[in-house]
Amino acid sequence: MCDIIWCKKDLGDGKVCDTVNYLDPYCFWNWEGKVACAHCGTVYYIHMIQGHMYAGPDEKPGEKPDIYPLYADQPNNGYFNYLPGIEGRTRPYTCLPRHIYLGKADMVKFSIRGRPVRGWRPQPPSAGIAGSQGFFWDIEKLSPEVWEEYQERIRKGEVKDW
């Protein structure tokens, strides 16, 4: 074991935890303390020096963990996983640009000041010969429903300069 803890805790009924807890390199490169398995909560004492497990992981039943992994999964169970920031299982990864995390394309039709921006798909075909395009987004013709919504926003005073 090293910078992952592949927890093999016997959970009773012949079940084994079988969860890989990823001890991310920057947090744990030199680290001493107790880390909990994201799945079964078993607390392990570890002492890592230069990325190597100098001591541990040793089970510490009944003790409170100092830290959680950022991410954990179960490769033998269809890659079931615990994403970052699940209370009591994983710690949050505090580099999020918004309060929500999508991880996939955000379908945006209006900029933050309420004007149309082509941030959604699919877009209707609009190219001429050899993929050529002009210099005018004919939104009224290509995406009339967005144009309508824009007019509505103007009426409601939701379109701003900044």
Partner: peptide
């Protein structure tokens, strides 16, 4: 490029690098 993918990939990569 998902966050969890970075965490997983880089943890195991570092296991090699150390």
């Amino acid at each position: 490029n998902a966050l969890q993918a970075l965490i997983k990939t880089y943890t195991v990569t570092t296991k090699w690098l150390r």
